Amino acid sequence: MDQLKKMLEGCYVTIPTPFHDTPDMELNVQALRAYVRFLVDSGLNGNYATLLAGGAAGDFSTMSFEERLQVAEIVVDEAAGAVPIAMGAQTTSTLELVRLAHAAKRIGVDFIQVSCPFYFAHTEADFEEYVRAAADAEPELGIIVYNTFWTSRDLSYSMVERLAEIPNVVGLKWAAPRTDAMEFEDVCSHFSSRFTIIDNNLFFGLSAMPSLGARAFEVHHCNFWPEWGIKLIDEVRTGNYAEVTRMLVEEGMPFYKLWMDIERNYTSGDGYLDKLCMELIGLPSSRCRPPTRDIRRTHHTATHEMMKKIGVPRLRNSP
């Protein structure tokens, strides 16, 4: 399991899932392969990244079980061993989670990502049984637990302690509500030697410090600016936390501010801004499946201006 923990270090990159612009919005296989080739050819290899197939930004919530497996199979095939692969396995059913775990092992992914089931307010004991079911189904498969407190139960410190007893839970994708109890820092500082902590709170300049010990970082920028993620990891490895913070403030924050503006005032979901940014550097694109609405016309200009401001390479001229 130590090898799996080491493999998970670096940028954690959720690949958006492209669809055809047809009424049924079928999976665009050629575009998905182009995404993976772009990431790997740009240097996001096993030294710098893990790719997540069919996560939230990959539209898992709008895809069928079979489509989710197809996406993972394509990503594994196109990556061809150049980079570790995780598969989104979030679901509301323990039985389906076990099926996803078995399928992930068969497909050849290295990790599955799981969160506490949503809709019902499940207890932490429910969630522990849920994770253990997946772990027991495929003991050699790495499991990444994602604390999606905004859609389901927030994981307590004691729950993280219990998850640490499960050998193949190797990653903790950690986000926490911000209070004076410093929940984010508390878990990172106490569990970074047990799990590979993936910072999902955008505290990279802080969380990467030895006192907290995060070794992986959720990086949307990699989908349209892989070099940014490579530089981030290089700066973390040299301990240049001031530069990491500068990168977040000057080049990261404008992206996230635009994302939050869209989320508050136009549509919700995930991956839609990544896709538009990818389109503006010449990659194939699509909308997310509804109910997330298409932002490509309404936010084209603002997105192009944001990308120009932060210095994204390969940016095409705005029509």
Rank of each mutant, 00 (worst) to 15 (best):
Leu8Pro: 14
Gly229Asp: 10
Cys116Thr: 13
Glu243His: 10
Glu66Ala: 15
Arg237Asp: 11
Met25Cys: 13
Val187Trp: 00
Cys188Pro: 06
Lys308Asn: 06
Val160Gln: 05
Val187Cys: 02
Cys188Val: 04
Ser93Asn: 11
Pro18Cys: 03
Thr14Tyr: 00
Ile281Met: 04
Thr50Ala: 08
Gly311Ala: 01
Glu138Arg: 13
Ala57Asn: 12
Lys275Val: 09
Asp21Ser: 15
Tyr157Ser: 10
Val114Phe: 03
Ser42Met: 03
Cys116Phe: 02
His300Leu: 14
Pro177Val: 02
Phe203Asp: 11
Leu248Cys: 13
Thr298Lys: 15
Ala176Trp: 01
Gly271Asp: 04
Lys308Pro: 06
Thr179Asn: 15
Pro284Ile: 12
Arg68Val: 00
Gly108Ser: 04
Pro84Phe: 00
Phe204Cys: 13
Ala86Ile: 04
Ala121Gly: 14
Arg162Tyr: 01
Asp294Val: 03
Tyr119Val: 13
Lys173Ser: 01
Leu172His: 04
Gly55Thr: 05
His102Cys: 09
Thr245His: 05
Asp274Leu: 05
Val131Cys: 05
Ser189Gln: 11
Leu232Lys: 02
Ala176Arg: 11
Thr50Gln: 07
Pro226His: 12
Val13Arg: 05
Asp21Arg: 14
Glu140Lys: 15
Leu155Tyr: 05
Leu8Lys: 10
Val114Cys: 08
Lys257Thr: 12
Ala121His: 13
Ser286Leu: 03
Val75Lys: 00
His299Ala: 09
Leu51Gln: 03
Leu44Gln: 03
Ile166Ser: 11
Arg297Gly: 14
Gly282Ala: 06
Glu235Lys: 15
Ala214Phe: 03
Cys11Asp: 04
Leu315Gly: 09
Ala79Ile: 10
Ile85Leu: 01
Thr91Arg: 05
Pro284His: 07
Arg37Met: 03
Ala176Ser: 14
Val249Ser: 09
Cys222Tyr: 00
Phe65Trp: 05
Leu232Asn: 02
Leu155Trp: 01
Gly54Leu: 03
Phe149Gln: 10
Val170Asp: 09
Asp110Val: 09
Thr94Tyr: 01
Trp228Phe: 12
Lys231Asp: 07
Leu280Asp: 04
Ala56Met: 08
Ser211Ile: 11
Cys222Gln: 06
Lys105Tyr: 01
